[in-house]
């Protein structure tokens, strides 16, 4: 089977003609991956919109929450122990129990949860109290400019301007995905700021302080924009009303 007549040593070693299949498959697979990086987001969004999050949730990588925690642990808070302390530049400082919050007017809507790192979960059902209603309940003073949020794990903090906090899709949520907010999602009570990236939606909400200037929160101190609008702009007001 050796072609001993050949003067070419390389081909003399080859019993038959060779095809560089390895190189082709390698380039084909990596090319496919590159296309996936370029267009995977659009494909996922299209499938999510066309078939709802049910199908997307079955696809690998699609529509799935990644659970983040700064401390590496989840604060475990019993519903009966839960307290939300609202203080600062307010007329009537107040501490809310979970029942207090549930007794207030209910706001519910279905919105996408979009993480700044790229994953998203469409069609998440949210339910809770408008932050605006909580501010009205305590009565904020004229000199108030912003809100500072603190979490039960004492690690995460967040901020919103008063105008941002007044938006109609910014809530203190106690139900999510059709059930009470679970511990890993920040339960029993978390913030949900629909027009901004997920890091603004602080989990395990323990306190709101009304303050006279924006105090950048944990993630902002680590380089994220203070105003985390979903379209990536960094201004204080939402440039795209359709996002709210």
């Amino acid at each position: 089977m050796l072609r001993t007549t050949s003067v070419d040593l390389v081909s003399a070693q080859e019993p038959t003609k060779r095809v560089p299949v390895g190189r082709r498959v390698f380039l084909g697979v990596t090319g496919l991956a590159a296309l996936g990086v370029a267009f995977g987001g659009s494909i996922q969004n299209f499938l999510g919109n066309a078939f709802g999050s049910g199908l997307g949730g079955l696809l690998p990588g699609g529509d799935r929450f990644r659970i983040y925690s700064i401390t590496g642990e989840y604060p475990k808070i019993k519903d009966s122990d839960y307290r939300l302390k609202v203080s600062g530049l307010v007329h009537h400082p107040k501490t809310f129990t979970l029942d207090d919050l549930k007794a207030m007017p209910v706001t519910s809507f279905t919105k996408t949860f979009q993480c700044v790192t790229g994953w998203r979960v469409p069609d998440v059902a949210w339910e809770g109290v408008l932050l605006s209603d909580i501010m009205d309940a305590v009565g904020i003073r004229d000199e108030a400019v912003a809100l500072t949020f603190e979490s039960y794990d004492r690690s995460d903090t967040e901020s919103l301007t008063i105008d941002q906090a007044r938006l109609s899709d910014v809530i203190v949520a106690y139900r999510m995905l059709g059930a009470p907010v679970t511990t890993e999602h920040g339960g029993p009570v978390r913030l949900y700021v629909a027009p901004m990236f997920g890091y603004k939606s602080l989990k395990w909400l323990s306190a709101i302080r009304v303050v006279d200037r924006v105090q950048p929160g944990f993630w902002e101190q680590n380089g994220y924009p203070v105003n985390g609008w979903l379209d990536g702009t960094t201004g204080p007001t939402n440039p795209d009303p359709s996002l709210t």
Partner: peptide
């Protein structure tokens, strides 16, 4: 960009 992040997540998971 956010779109590329989403694509990278998609490919990494798939």
């Amino acid at each position: 960009s956010v779109s590329l992040r989403q694509g990278a997540t998609f490919v990494h998971d798939a």
